[in-house]
């Protein structure tokens, strides 16, 4: 009865130990510091509630999150679709690989002034910046995943006459899904970074915008609360992603567990 409970308590303690230690360390190092730029955790926590009112969350955090989700999902759809296409054809792959590597190497922030010219300064530009950065891990991972489809399974499909949509769904995407999910996970953290960066240019709302405004107005504790909120957002999204990943890849994880068990 008490065994699972104590296991749970141990798990919670494991999760919280390091954050608590870091906060205490921060508090200890900043307690005697009179510098405006290094507020104590207490000051930041006190200001947090004042700054992030429901009103501000609606006007600044919500647009950011929506742009992030729009950019991430569009990059996901585009990246997987193009990845399947390129991955299924060795000729197309050889043809496009150098170009893909070239575009992948361009840091998206330097594209912002160019994107302003084409996409304006509204949300379109910001979503475009997010897509331009986080499509690459998805695309390239999908290509690799599709390329590595088990030839025995592919032959089996062929002999059973499975083709078209069914083949794509049951064979190609399924067997590429571990790589695709790894690409999506990478893309998610890139998307958060680019969400912030895109809002530092030509913005009038958003989390990145608010943090920069606080910094310029020397509202330093307020600036820190924005950074903390960004961290919490990233943490929350990673948790949600983890849940989705476990569902999508349950067959794969089960397979791996079974393979490990049989050895």
């Amino acid at each position: 009865m008490s065994a699972p409970l104590s296991r749970l308590a141990l798990r919670v303690a494991q999760i919280l130990a390091l954050p608590v230690f870091l906060i205490v360390l921060w508090w200890y190092l900043s307690r005697a510091n009179t510098s405006l730029f290094v507020p104590t955790p207490g000051t930041i926590a006190g200001v947090f509630g004042e700054v992030w009112t429901p009103e501000r969350l609606r006007t600044d955090a919500l647009p950011s999150v929506l742009r992030l989700l729009a950019g991430f999902s569009l990059a996901g759809v585009l990246g997987i679709a193009l990845g399947v296409l390129i991955g299924s054809s060795p000729r197309l792959r050889a043809f496009s690989e150098p170009v893909l590597e070239f575009f992948r190497a361009i840091p998206p922030p330097v594209l912002v002034p160019v994107l302003i010219l084409f996409a304006g300064i509204d949300s379109t530009m910001k979503v475009a910046v997010i897509i331009s950065g986080c499509i690459w891990p998805i695309l390239l991972n999908t290509v690799e995943g599709v390329r590595a489809v088990d030839p025995v399974l592919a032959d089996t499909c062929r002999s059973y006459g499975i083709r078209g949509g069914t083949r794509l769904r049951t064979l190609v995407l399924r067997s590429a899904s571990p790589q695709i999910m790894a690409g999506l996970r990478q893309a998610l953290s890139i998307a958060i970074i680019l969400m912030v960066i895109s809002e530092m240019f030509a913005a009038s709302s958003g989390l990145g915008f608010t943090i920069v405004q606080f910094q310029r107005g020397f509202a330093i504790p307020e600036m820190w609360t924005g950074i903390v909120l960004l961290g919490l957002l990233g943490f929350g999204l990673a948790m949600v992603f983890g849940v989705v990943e476990r569902r999508v890849l349950s067959w794969y994880l089960g397979l791996r567990r079974a393979a490990r068990g049989s050895n």
């Binding site: 002034p113 302003i116 300064i121 240019f201 030509a202 913005a203 009038s204 915008f209």
Partner: peptide, 9 residues
Amino acid sequence: GFVELPFPD
């Protein structure tokens, strides 16, 4: 309505 842009842009 004000929006932030670098002067060169």
